[in-house]
Amino acid sequence: MVGLFKEQIMTSATLQQQLPADWRDFLALTKPGVMRLVIFTGLCGLLAAPGSINPVLGFTAVLCIAMGAGGSAVLNMWWEADIDAKMKRTANRPLPTGRIARRDARDFGIALSVAAVLIMGVAVNWLAAGILAIATVYYAVIYTMWLKPRTPQNIVIGGGAGAFPPMIGWVAVTNDITAMPILLFAIIFMWTPPHFWALALFVKSDYAKAGIPMLPVVAGEKVTRQQILLYSVILLPLTIAPWAIGGTSWLYGISAAVLSTVFLGFAVKVAFRERGDDDTMKPEKQLFAYSIVYLFVLFGVLVADRVLAAQGMIG
C-alpha cells in the first residue's frame, strides 16, 4: 500500500524532470549578459565600417551575430554542465539544476549556430558568414572542449572568440578584410585577459574548486598580476593604431589614448600589490568594472568618430 502510494505521488524532483523546460530557461542558456557586449561590439563594427548597408540587412547581420554568440554559449553550457554544477556562480544554471535536458540544450545550440551562419550567408554575405562559422567553432569546440580544461592560457585563447563580432559587423558592410577590422579584433583580443584575470583574482577559489586551470590557480597571483600589466601595456598602442594608420580622426585617437592610459593605471595598481589578510580586492574589482566601461566607451567613440567624419564634421 505504501509502495503504491509512493508510485502515485510524484516527488518534486521527478516533477521537475518531467516538466518541459520553460522558454526563459532556453533564453538563459544563451548567456544574454555576454550577448549584450557581443551585440554592441558587432553593431559598432557595422556602424564604423566605410560604406553603407540597408537597415534590414544591417539588423539581420547583428541578429545573426547575436544568434551565433547565443548558440556558442548554449554549446559551452551543454559541455560544461558538470563543471557549472561545482561552482557557486553557475550552479543555478538550467542544466546543472536539471531544468533542461542536456540533449535538448545541445540540439538548441547546434540549431541556433547553424541558422545564424546560413541566414548571414543568404541575407548579407558569405565572407561574414564564414567568419561567424569560424568564431562559433573556435569558441564551442577549440576553446570550450579542447583548450579551456587543458591550459592556463585559456582566457587568452577564449578572448579570440569574443574578438570576432566587430570584425563580422565590419565585413557585413564591406565584404572585405582590411587592417581596420583586424585591429578591432586585436583590441578585444588584448583586452580580454586583463578583464577576466582581474575577475579570476577575486573569484579564484570557485575556479579552483571546479578544477579549471585558471592562471591565478596554476601559476599563482604574482604571475597573473604581471600578465595583466603586460597585456594592458600592449593594449595602449594597439588602441591608438586605428588613428595612426589613418582609419580614424583625432577624436578617436585622443579618446583611445586617454581611456587606455587610465586602463593601464588601474592595471599598474593591480600589478604591484600583494593580497593581504582580509583583502577586499578593491583594485582588482575596480579594474574589472572599469574594463567593461572602457570597452563600451572606446567602441562608442569609434562609431561617433566615423559618423562625424562621414558627415564632414571632423577630418
Binding site: M10, L15, Q18, L19, P20, A21, D22, W23
Partner: peptide, 13 residues
C-alpha cells in the same frame, strides 16, 4: 497541480 504546471509551460513555450 503538476498537470496545470505542465499545461502552463507548454502554452508559454
Amino acid at each position: 497541480e503538476h498537470e496545470a504546471e505542465l499545461n502552463r509551460r507548454r502554452k508559454s513555450r
